[in-house]
Design a protein around this nucleic acid. Structure first.
Lengths: 338, 338
DNA sequence: TAAAACTACGAAAACGATTAAGTAAGCATT
DNA sequence: AATGCTTACTTAATCGTTTTCGTAGTTTTA
């Protein structure tokens, strides 16, 4: 590997000069600068990131924390999309993206924070984890630049899908389709879920829709079995809902199964709506009505924010970024028959 | 950040001694070793990965190349699963995983190989890319330890899903269900596709099934529109097939749409089979018959292999690792009515 | 008892970069 | 002509490790 020293030898100047020339400092003559750059190019010079990081304390590397204890993480469509967009964004800024090791089996396991320090990540993006984990808290409370996704911490930048507005839009759409008896199967208890649920209740109230307790079922995300169970329960009520909102698009498939089994048809007999906007939803028959979260925007905003936090900490405003989604009016919510 | 020097000051020994004690060298007295380790622990010492890498030329970091030009990559279920498993494996061995920057927008764009050298990755895993890309070739032909996924290069370790056996098993299963007229919509031209196609023809021959040219349609992966088109084409034939094999599970959804539109029923009127074994396939109604690729095993094998290549290059045998899949006999392939 | 061998540690160079401080030469200023 | 200011470099320290080569002191061997 050719180093600054090699170049300096060839050019007959000191390493300092080479370094400065390559980094465009102004105290190097134009002609020398050109010559050095040319030689560096010819010799195939590449800076050594380790040396650079050691000296400058900047790694140009962003750590991402994506726990997969629950076998989620990368296999989770929503987060995979967000991650994909995040990756593109930071890469366009010249940063790389490294996963923060969260294996418990690894030798010398250290906390997330310690791992971040060890690797010298310039910043960290956290998503899809248990935000109440002590180690996550430790990371959040450290001096490392952090952006969280879909969870808000005090004094930290968060990029959040607008679940409040999203649920409001979705329920309003359903209302406008004539439904007055809408059930909601919500996901496991997270701030995302709480926001959606609150918004569900508030919107219903605004629309003067009554929501019997039996219409709100506590399920969990991407759990098709549970979705089936909940659907069965809802449709078995004396006064069943005319529309069911699921915690996510996958869960809808569970709903569809039960509905089919009961000999009912979507959307004629019962309407359903999902949440997320996964690709396959718009290709099935009938096309899924759902709230499409803007994963592209969430990922890219998270990327822009973490880089801004790293590069200009003083002028970066610390406030949540809310990304709105969009009702994707497919065919699974039909005109309500009263 | 506390460094070796700080510890050496506290312990009253030299940095060399501290380094050696912490790394378990044998030329340090037992009691000193214990003392140093304890002090290091108390002071919250963390090695500096950059300094370590600079000195040792080992980064304990694995680069992964996952191109997403085609908006695939992380959003691709199959590869996301593989990646997830790869991540777990390398992390358990104490390695981190970093994406190889493939953004064309980034400042000072360099080739993949140069980026790998710059970051000092100990090894690289390549998947889901255009294997005929010059930059990929450059990387493959370098002295960097490389493992490829689902593509075989001379003298390099590849971890490959057994598409030959997979297609054979799938077609044989379909044959055993009584089908004699089986069509195959294949994906775009890659070595994976060619293997499957060859195996399809060969297996058909072995089973004495005739495959008219019109039964083999060249489509592409995860392209639902194309799958719909191809399905329509196949079902419009004078002598239509009784079963259609799709290039992947997603494409099946396209097939299902067309079939439904034509007023046909799966599997009574027409059978279909996918390939991959994505989660949702086993939850839809009727449950998808497909060939489940063993993504866990593919990812973990790739991880084990790259680490073996890094840590014991001499004794690592350079040969492809073939991972077999499994027919997942759902309900979309029924008994053939002749 | 002198030589050889071990044991336990230290000094110093090195990895490849960055950067503050110094310096020599050339030029303008008074 | 002495001074100061630029310009264009160089020197040398430094980041935090690892590792080779010493070197005292102790123990074993002949």
């Amino acid at each position: 590997m050719v180093s600054l020293k090699d170049i300096s030898a060839v050019c007959g100047v000191s390493v300092a000069t080479v370094s400065k020339a390559l980094n465009g400092h102004k105290d190097i003559g134009e002609s020398t600068k050109r010559h050095i750059k040319q030689v560096a190019e010819e010799m195939g010079y590449l800076p050594n990131s380790a040396a650079k990081a050691l000296k400058t304390n900047r790694s140009y590397n962003i750590g991402v924390l994506f726990a997969d204890e629950a076998h989620n993480g990368l296999k989770h469509d929503y987060f995979a999309s967000v991650l994909d967009s995040l990756k593109k964004t930071v890469e366009a800024h010249g940063y790389d993206m490294t996963f923060i090791n969260c294996s418990n089996e690894r030798p010398n396991r250290t906390s997330y924070l310690n791992h971040v320090r060890y690797r010298g990540f310039d910043g960290v993006v956290i998503a899809c984890v248990d935000f109440y984990d002590d180690e996550v808290a430790e990371l959040i409370n450290s001096d490392i630049p952090v952006v969280t996704i879909d969870h808000l911490f005090d004094n930290r930048i968060a990029v959040i899908s607008d679940n409040v507005q999203g649920m409001k839009d979705l329920l309003t759409y359903i209302y406008e389709m004539g439904h007055r008896k809408v059930a909601y199967i919500c996901g496991n208890d997270t701030s995302v879920t709480r926001n959606r649920l609150t918004s569900f209740y508030r919107t219903a109230e605004e629309l003067h829709m009554e929501v019997p307790d039996s219409y709100v079922v506590h399920g969990s995300y991407r759990d098709i079995d549970k979705a089936e169970e909940a659907t069965e329960q809802l449709l078995g009520l004396d006064d069943p809902p005319t529309c069911i909102i699921y915690p996510d698009d996958f869960s809808c498939f569970g709903g569809l199964n039960v509905i089919k089994k009961l000999g009912l048809k979507v959307p004629d007999d019962i309407s359903i709506a999902g949440y997320d906007g996964i690709m396959i939803g718009s290709y099935i028959e009938p096309q899924l009505t759902t709230l499409k979260q803007n994963t592209d925007s969430i990922g890219s905003q998270a990327g822009e924010k973490i880089i801004s936090l790293i590069e200009k900490p003083r002028t970066t405003v610390i406030e949540p970024v809310i990304i709105s989604g969009e009702v994707c009016n497919g065919e699974t919510v039909g005109k309500a028959v009263r």
